[in-house]
Nucleic acid binder design. Structure first.
Lengths: 342, 342
DNA sequence: CTGAAAGCGCTTACAG
DNA sequence: CTGAAAGCGCTTACAG
């Protein structure tokens, strides 16, 4: 195996072009103060030597790395098993690519202290970060939010004006789902399998569920609510627990599609037919939701768009330095398929 | 919004501890030449100031960034829609996390020149790279392979001893699938929907298909082979074309599960029942393959393990500098479900 | 319009 | 065992 040759540096280019490194640098960044002829000279030299700037040298001096990080404080197993994160990543990479930014992906391993967020910024690994899915209680997040570093939050602090965030209207989404069950299907005993309630998105869906019941004069019954953690397995567990409680249930609204699919399995096991015996509505609209039988009626949330908008916000933040804090909230849409009984 | 304070540097730490920056640096890296008392002193100062080393400064001097990149020369849309990449990424991040390496994810946008691979290395954005799914013909890959930079290839050049690679025995995998159809189900007109044949994995599966037919004295019939591109849509297209050719077909072996699911849709459309009228075998064993009806018999390939091994290889390469080139090949396993008729 | 110098934040020889 | 200096590869004032 051939070894790596000494890299071509700006010094080599400057030397070949017969100018100082300062001028070479300015020429390559197309600075108007450099004479056109000199510029051409330098460009020719750079091309001839196949020069590629060392980003580390550049970053040390200019304080800009040209990279952004997506931080998801979950294990990689978790992150890559949930379509939500995948879709968000898709959106972020798309925008990052378009802006020629390097993308750093940071998930946490079990043995890692939680303050990984701050570290990535303070150690200058990325110019700015997008933080997804941190739990509400995480104290590091509060510190990060008030640190002044360029940070965009996903799905948190919708109403905190000091923080830049991209969120989805999960309260509204849940209201859509539950309202559909009540108004269209005349169902009244509607259960809710929640996500992890320490996370904003899960708490918001629960609130929406409650709200929709209240608006129709239906009581909120704790026995019809079971907490899960967004995994399919937790959907199975939660659905079993719900049925075992023995309360009459006509419909289930679950906090995401994976839990809904888990619930579907349990209902099948117990000989209950969906939607005949029990209606089911999910959340997210992942691709699986159209593939399972019966296909899932579900609340579509624009996951990829969330990633895209977050990246755009971050880039603006990096460019202007002094952007106004702002909150973007995206709408949801109820996608009607078979599982609700329509 | 509070602005970012001047970052704490090593100089600050050294000053507070009353030593030179050189000693401070050595103390923090636990160099045995530093006196224990001095070390304690420096550590205390660092803690008090909440010091976090600037990786850029460190990298410029020490030539190690502490980051690796996964390069997938496909659009982010493509990458994040294919479970294969997701699973590979899962494995890579897992190992990277365990070794405290930052992970850079590089997909290509349409308007990007293909030489992005080299750039990421030469511009010192990553210490080493894992390259997945490059087409066989890509000339940049050849240059990269012989550049001497730390590179691990996925699914290529199985027999090129100059290159470090992690591959899956796709020839063997295809042989398993086709042999099963022939020996167990006594089927003889077996069609093959291929992946993009410019990619090693697709070419290998075709070879395995051919091999298995040959071993059983069955003719290779071009009319039973249709090329796709691993997308579900291409599975639909390829399957339609196959059926439209009017050749008798008893079974279809498709190059991945997504194409298989596409084929399934077409067969359903045309009123053909799987496996009664036609047997079907896929490849990959993505989670969807167990969820569709009928569930897919498929060749399981250890995608996450591929990612894990690739990362390990790369890390060894980075640590030893002078590793022997080596090729890792992982086995496949036929997972029997319903679609083959078992 | 250009050159020479300083400096970004570290680590690594080199003296002592 | 420690300090002072050099230097990694750039960009950015500062003079001219």
């Amino acid at each position: 195996m051939q070894t790596v040759k000494r890299a071509v540096t700006l010094k080599d280019v400057a030397q070949l072009a017969g100018v100082s490194t300062g001028i070479a640098s300015m020429a390559l960044s197309d600075d108007p103060r450099v004479a056109a002829a000199t510029k051409a000279n330098v460009l020719r030299a750079a091309e001839k030597l196949d020069y590629i700037p060392n980003m580390v040298g550049r970053a040390l001096r200019s304080k800009r790395l040209g990279s952004i990080a997506v931080i998801i404080p979950q294990t990689s197993q978790h992150v890559f098993s949930h379509p939500y994160f995948i879709e968000v990543l898709k959106g972020v990479t798309d925008v990052a690519n378009a802006h020629n930014l390097t993308l750093i992906l940071s998930t946490s391993s079990a043995n890692q202290e939680e303050e990984a967020y701050m570290k990535i910024l303070r150690s200058r690994r990325a110019d700015g970060v997008i933080v997804a899915s941190a739990s509400i209680a995480d104290p590091n997040i509060a510190r990060l939010a008030s640190s002044g570093y360029p940070v965009v939050f996903l799905g948190r602090d919708r109403h905190d004006e000091r923080v830049i965030s991209v969120t989805v209207d999960d309260i509204g989404g849940a209201v859509q789902a539950v309202t559909h069950l009540i108004e269209k299907h005349k169902l009244h005993s509607i259960a809710h399998l929640t996500g992890p309630l320490g996370h904003r998105s899960a708490a918001d869906k629960l609130e929406g569920y409650r709200l929709a019941l209240g608006r129709h004069g239906l009581p909120f019954d704790e026995r019809l609510v079971v907490e899960g953690d967004y995994s399919q397995e937790s959907g199975i567990r939660a659905c079993r627990e719900l049925l075992d409680r023995g309360q009459p249930v006509e419909a289930i609204f679950a906090a995401n599609d994976e839990m809904t699919i888990g619930a579907l399995q349990v209902l099948e096991e117990r000989g209950l037919q969906v939607p005949r015996d029990l209606a089911l509505i999910g959340y997210d609209d992942i691709s699986l939701s159209a593939a399972v039988r019966p296909s899932l009626t579900t609340v579509h949330q624009p996951m990829e768009e969330v990633g895209r908008r977050a990246a755009q916000c971050l880039i603006e933040l990096l460019d202007e330095k002094t952007t106004e804090p702002r909150q973007v909230e995206l709408p949801t849409e109820l996608v009607i398929r078979k599982s609700c009984g329509c």
